Simulated scan of single mutants.
Amino acid sequence: MIGSMQLPLSMRLPDNASFENFVPGPNRAAVAAVSEPRGDVLLIGGPGSGKSHLLQAALRQWQARDRDVAYAPLDDVDGALLAAYVDADLLAVDELERLRPEHSLVLLRVLDTRRAAARITVIAARDRPANLDAIPPDLKTRLTQAEVYPLAPLDDAARQQLLIQRAQGRGLSLPPEVAHWLLTQLPRDSGSLIQVLDELDLASLQAQRRLTIPFVRQALRDVRPHST
């Protein structure tokens, strides 16, 4: 559990995962459910939808309240480690679609034990459990007891807000016209936009240049020859 046992480096929480820097757009109900969960919560969303960010923000918030928390991305934990998290005040299970056979029975027992003890589990998956071949029927049935929140894509105004806000968090000034131009040139999922912002942050630092449309266009050509 984070705060009471040492986690592998790959499973430590990133410093930038918070509710304050998450742009909810049409997903305010999902944000509210994860920030103050009354029971188990299941977030559904594709890559870059922000579901992992929300799980990590919830963990960080509970951790700040001196509660024991545990983060279990199923691509990184084995069954024994997952079982060790059963008593965490808040458990976040990420990447449910990556469930392996060794996880199935362990996760079912963990969820049942936690529910009986009124402990909260928040879960993220790319699709509803009913549509995931990796989830066995008994676990699918158990997961129907969670509140389910599909994450809807952001509209362009929210995407622009996301870019500007994340740039500010890096100490970058991203003018609205540059953010708008990026939205006309790039894939619009949040994950892709944040990746491009990382690239522009490095390019701006190396060149000691402000983020203008001409500079951004050239920087993207340098790192992505087939874009823009």
Rank of each mutant, 00 (worst) to 15 (best):
I120D: 01
I120A: 04
I120Y: 00
T121A: 05
V122A: 08
I123D: 11
A124L: 06
A125F: 04
R126M: 07
R126A: 13
D127L: 10
D127K: 08
P129K: 08
A130N: 07
L132S: 08
L132T: 09
D133T: 09
D133Y: 08
D133W: 04
A134M: 06
A134Y: 12
I135S: 12
I135F: 10
P136N: 06
P136C: 08
P136E: 09
P137Q: 09
D138Q: 11
D138L: 10
D138I: 05
D138G: 09
D138R: 14
L139V: 12
L139Q: 09
L139C: 11
L139A: 11
L139E: 13
K140F: 11
K140R: 15
T141A: 15
T141Y: 01
R142A: 12
R142V: 01
R142M: 03
L143R: 04
T144K: 13
Q145L: 15
Q145S: 15
A146F: 13
E147N: 11
E147S: 13
E147P: 06
V148Y: 00
V148L: 05
V148F: 01
V148G: 05
Y149P: 12
Y149W: 14
Y149E: 09
Y149Q: 08
Y149S: 10
P150A: 13
L151T: 11
L151Q: 04
A152N: 10
P153E: 05
P153F: 05
L154S: 02
L154Y: 00
L154Q: 01
D155K: 00
D155Q: 01
D155G: 13
D156F: 04
A157M: 09
A158V: 02
A158M: 00
A158Q: 03
R159G: 02
R159H: 00
R159Q: 09
Q160K: 05
Q160T: 03
Q160V: 00
Q161E: 15
Q161G: 03
L162E: 03
L162A: 06
L163Y: 06
L163A: 04
I164L: 01
I164T: 09
I164W: 06
Q165F: 04
R166D: 03
Q168T: 07
Q168G: 15
Q168F: 01
G169S: 02
G169D: 00
G169Y: 03
G169A: 04
R170T: 10
G171V: 03
L172E: 07
L172M: 13
L174I: 10
L174M: 14
P175L: 10
P175M: 09
P176G: 10
P176Q: 04
P176N: 10
E177N: 15
E177Y: 04
V178Y: 00
V178M: 07
A179M: 08
A179K: 02
H180K: 15
H180E: 15
W181M: 12
L182R: 08
L183W: 03
L183A: 06
L183N: 08
Q185S: 13
Q185M: 13
Q185A: 14
L186C: 14
L186A: 11
P187Q: 11
R188V: 12
R188Y: 00
R188M: 08
D189L: 06
D189N: 15
D189H: 15
D189P: 07
G191F: 10
S192R: 07
S192L: 00
L193D: 04
I194G: 00
I194D: 06
Q195L: 03
Q195K: 02
V196L: 00
L197S: 13
L197C: 14
L200A: 02
L200V: 04
D201V: 03
D201H: 05
L202V: 14
A203I: 02
A203L: 07
A203R: 05
